[in-house]
Design a protein around this nucleic acid. Structure first.
Lengths: 199, 199
DNA sequence: CCTACCGATCGGTAGG
DNA sequence: CCTACCGATCGGTAGG
């Protein structure tokens, strides 16, 4: 029975994962409103009511795409208990990894921009996401300040906002001109002006 | 005859300007694809074929919205022959002014993000816009380097990309949390780490 | 500038 | 998972 239910789940899970991957691409290329369920479904070789068998509606699909990305990222990072400089190193590492994933970068750039409208289905998600991210990085800066690893006058909260803003802005430039921008080294150079120790 | 044609033009121009302003708002709130000509037209109290009497199609409307903004900005700045530190001061000033124009900020954030897709109608516009902007700021950094006003090791082109990325990223955070971010002072603080002189 | 209309496409449901 | 269908909405045109 275990193997039966496992096998049964597996097929459906594969389709679900394919839909999630395809939807991420399309939300990136066309935006949330611009992407159509029919187009996403066709790319998965199913009908659009077939897609709606797996996800109740378009909003739910978007939210599951976002949450699926977070889960995969969490799994990749392994050590989520980083503190201080390790958090900053992880940001640079993440920028480096992103340079081989234009689809994921585009999706976050486009959907986070759309989500600034307060009636966007992912508005609350991004408000909460930024609050969490800024908090985490600010805390890392605070730990470094207490260890006297920060350049004088660096404000942890402001520096956190600046670092994340820089990362977001570089992604737009990188998407418009892949070869003109090296996101990871631009971040590293910036960080090195904030901290005394070496990254 | 002069006064007749002036009066005749004036009415049409007023409607055109109203449409441009309303379209800017809607492109910001709904994105280019998400905004509808019918909705924009209704907010101007005309029919949507009425709107299409002034603009041949949706793409042309978007392009005219973007160009209209550039014209107004150019007119406001007055002194476009700034060099060196004046260019950086203008960037900070611009961030400060933007903090009273959420509609304009949202429009640029959303449409520039959408435009990273190579088939977006404003793709070429934004590729060209970023190239020009980065060039201008990089040139300002170069002038300052030659005047020995730059902190050691600052690379003009990289610093230009970072400054513009920071500005773009701060706009997203500001749109999501107006009270949590002061774009102008975040920019000023960043710039002061790159230059020896006072802003 | 308007009304009336076009074909295309959308998200979602019924029913199997 | 499918076919068939729904009402709503889209950008754009005809003709005035």
């Amino acid at each position: 029975m275990t193997s039966d239910s496992t096998r049964a789940t597996r097929k459906g899970d594969q389709t679900r994962t394919l839909i999630l991957r395809t939807a991420l691409e399309q939300f990136g290329e066309q935006g949330y409103r611009g992407a159509s369920l029919r187009d996403i479904a066709a790319r998965c070789a199913i009908s659009h009511p077939g897609l709606l068998y797996h996800f109740p509606n378009k909003q739910a699909l978007l939210m599951e795409v976002l949450e699926h990305r977070d889960e995969v990222d969490r799994a990749e990072q392994a050590s989520a208990d980083d503190t201080g400089i390790d958090v900053l190193r992880r940001m640079v590492r993440s920028a480096s990894v992103n340079q081989s994933r234009p689809g994921i970068v585009e999706m976050f750039v486009v959907v986070s921009a759309e989500s600034t409208a307060s009636d966007h289905p992912a508005h609350d998600y991004f408000v909460e996401r930024y609050a969490r991210l800024i908090d985490e990085v600010a805390q890392a800066y605070r730990v470094m300040r207490d260890a006297e690893q920060l350049v004088d006058g660096v404000n942890p909260l402001l520096a956190a906002r600046q670092l994340i803003a820089l990362m977001d802005g570089l992604q737009v430039q990188w998407l418009l001109d892949n070869d003109g921008v090296d996101m990871a080294s631009a971040l590293r150079e910036h960080l090195q002006r904030h901290i005394k120790v070496s990254l």
